[in-house]
């Protein structure tokens, strides 16, 4: 969303709760659709390689561990810059396409490390920071807002905030809207990615309502989960969120991005996510500006598959550089 559009939205968009009051989500039907979507599309050969490279460019390469240090963040950043071995990209005639991951995603305290490492690597991959009491959001609003401001000051250009589940479960939708509005303002120029923690919202209808409110409050992305809950990015949740994104687009003309995160580990999963986006939203969403995958180990599996596609052999662990 460009700045002008955002200002326009700031002025005109109010909490029109009628957008979420009538919504019906039938869980067994969504589950059935989720099963189908995994069996109805497949890509092979060249198509598979090209789709996997597209998936790479949509990855938010993530490290959210208690033992992260400068060196581990530096390794992460260099892997983000060089996600696939050069010779493999050359074989696919993709070397000059500038294939990098979409962003690196770290804790607020590691933003400086990431900015520094990326600068040293000579690239402008954005740094995303989680914030607002990640992952539980059970801290005071004041400190949550301050966390955003500090991360932005440190150089994060994307902020992954996590919503207050208490407000959802107690039905305080307007309060939730107000909180996300404040996050939006605290972000300033940085992109706001709102994590719904769908596994803790109780039901799919709440997932739809939270998605819609997060978009109405000005989120640039909505994101499934923190990766720290027991339920991660699942297809049923994604289907409901994508339908909300489409409805919001039809109502306002604004395209909001989608980011599944947590539990996406295999190249096959990545392909299914891409086809899910293509089917539910369309090709225009299949770019890093509107689609991200939050993952850490996914990249190495994709690299393995591309190695196999190019050479016809499966690689040993030491054939591919670690992150």
């Amino acid at each position: 969303m460009d700045l002008q559009a955002r200002h326009l939205l700031d002025k005109c968009c109010t909490t029109d709760l009628s957008w979420i009051s009538k919504i019906q989500v039938n869980q067994p039907a969504v589950l059935r659709r989720a099963e189908q979507i995994q069996a109805r599309r497949t890509v092979k050969k060249e198509w598979q390689a090209a789709w996997l490279l597209k998936a790479v460019t949509c990855i938010d390469l993530t490290s959210l561990s208690g033992d992260d240090t400068f060196s581990s963040i530096q390794r992460l950043c260099y892997k983000a810059k060089y996600p696939i071995r050069e010779d493999l990209l050359k074989a696919l005639h993709m070397y000059d396409e500038g294939i990098t991951t979409a962003a690196v995603c770290v804790y607020p305290a590691r933003v400086c490390d990431a900015v520094k490492a990326l600068k040293a690597a000579g690239c402008d991959i954005p740094v995303a920071s989680v914030a607002t009491g990640f992952p539980a959001a059970q801290t005071h609003l004041q400190t949550r807002l301050e966390e955003i401001r500090l991360a932005v000051e440190d150089g994060a250009t994307e902020i992954d905030v996590v919503i207050n589940r208490t407000l959802v479960l107690t039905g305080q939708w307007e309060a939730l809207y107000d909180e996300i509005r404040q996050f939006r303002q605290a972000c300033g120029e940085a992109h706001l990615k709102t994590i719904l923690a769908a596994g803790e919202l109780g039901c799919l209808t709440n997932v739809y309502k939270a998605s819609m409110l997060a978009m109405m409050a000005g989120s640039d992305f909505i994101k499934t989960s923190t990766g720290k809950e027991t339920v991660n990015a699942t297809f049923p949740v994604a289907i409901v969120m994508l339908r909300a994104i489409r409805d919001f687009f039809w109502k306002t003309g604004n395209k909001v991005g989608f980011k599944p995160a947590g539990g996406i580990r295999t190249a096959k999963d990545a392909l299914t996510w891409l086809s899910l986006i293509k089917e539910e939203l369309g090709d225009e969403w299949l770019k890093p500006e509107l689609f991200r995958i939050g993952a850490s180990s996914l990249l190495s599996d994709i690299e393995r598959q591309i190695y196999h596609h190019v050479t016809g052999r499966y690689p040993a662990n030491h054939d591919l550089p670690m992150s």
Binding site: R41, T42, V43, K44, K45, E46, W47, A49, A50, W51, L53, K54, A91, L92, H93, M94, E97, L274, K278, D283, L286, H309, V310, T311, G312
Partner: peptide, 23 residues
Amino acid sequence: MAANPAGPSAREIFSTLEYGPAP
């Protein structure tokens, strides 16, 4: 393996993101 004389190259597919044949 990577050669695909008849169809589009990976590079082209990367920009169109079409489905290919999966017979």
